[in-house]
C-alpha cells in the first residue's frame, strides 16, 4: 500500500549534491570563483611572459631550459594558489556558517550548508591552482614547440608574447562583458598592462 518512493543512498547523495550546488549558486561563490580565475590566470600569463622575455633578453637561448623553469614556476603557482585559496575560503566560509548556526541555533555541519562550505573551498582552490598554470602554459606553448625544434627560439618568444597579450585581452574582454561595461576598454587595459611588463622586462634584460 505504501506508494511513497523510498530512496537509495546513491540517489540521496546525488540530490544532496544538487542542493549543495544550488546553494553555492545562490551565494557569492560564482563571482568569487570568476574573480579567482581571472586574477590568477592574469598572474600566470604575466609571470610567464616576464620570465620568457627576461630569459631571452638576458642572453638565454635554450628553449628547453625556459620550458623547464616555466613548468616549475607553474607548479609553484598552482600549489601556492591551491593552498592559499583552500585555507582562505575555508576560513571565510566557516565564519559565515558559524554566523548562520548562531541564527539557526543548531549545528549545520552535517547539512547541505556544511557540504556547500567544503565544496566551495575545494572548488575555489582548484580554480586558483589551475588558472595560473593554464595561463602560464598557454603562453609557454610556443617555447615548448621551439624546444621540440618546430620553430626558432626568437620566433617562439615573439609568439609567446603575442599569445600572452591576446590571452590578457581576452580576460579583460570577459571581465568587461561581466561588468556589462566596455569589454574592449577592459581588454585593452589588461593587454596594456602586459605590454608594459614586456617593455620593462625587455629594457631590463637588454641592459
Amino acid at each position: 500500500m505504501n506508494q511513497a518512493p523510498r530512496l537509495t543512498n546513491a540517489r540521496r547523495l546525488g540530490s544532496g549534491l544538487g542542493e549543495v550546488f544550488r546553494i553555492l549558486a545562490s551565494t557569492d561563490f560564482p563571482s568569487i570563483a570568476r574573480r579567482y580565475f581571472v586574477m590568477n590566470c592574469f598572474d600566470g600569463v604575466m609571470t610567464m611572459m616576464g620570465f620568457i622575455l627576461g630569459y631571452f633578453f638576458s642572453g638565454g637561448s635554450n628553449p628547453g631550459t625556459a620550458v623547464g623553469a616555466g613548468v616549475a614556476a607553474s607548479i609553484a603557482m598552482g600549489v601556492s594558489g591551491f593552498t592559499g585559496a583552500l585555507l582562505t575560503e575555508f576560513a571565510e566560509r566557516a565564519r559565515e556558517l558559524e554566523e548562520l548556526e548562531r541564527a539557526m541555533l543548531k549545528d549545520l555541519t552535517p547539512t547541505v550548508f556544511g557540504r556547500a562550505l567544503r565544496v566551495a573551498a575545494l572548488a575555489a582552490a582548484v580554480v586558483d591552482a589551475l588558472a595560473p598554470a593554464a595561463g602560464a602554459m598557454t603562453v609557454a606553448a610556443p617555447v615548448v614547440l621551439s624546444s621540440m625544434g618546430l620553430v626558432g627560439f626568437p620566433t617562439a618568444v615573439t609568439l609567446s608574447t603575442a599569445t600572452g597579450l591576446l590571452v590578457l585581452f581576452a580576460l579583460g574582454y570577459y571581465m568587461g562583458r561581466i561588468a556589462e561595461g566596455r569589454p574592449l576598454l577592459y581588454g585593452a587595459a589588461m593587454a596594456g598592462a602586459g605590454a608594459l611588463v614586456s617593455v620593462a622586462v625587455t629594457l631590463l634584460g637588454g641592459a
Binding site: 545562490s26 548562520l100 541564527a103
Partner: peptide
C-alpha cells in the same frame, strides 16, 4: 536559512 530558497 534564507539562502535556501522556498521553491528549492
Amino acid at each position: 536559512p534564507r539562502e535556501l530558497g522556498l521553491s528549492e
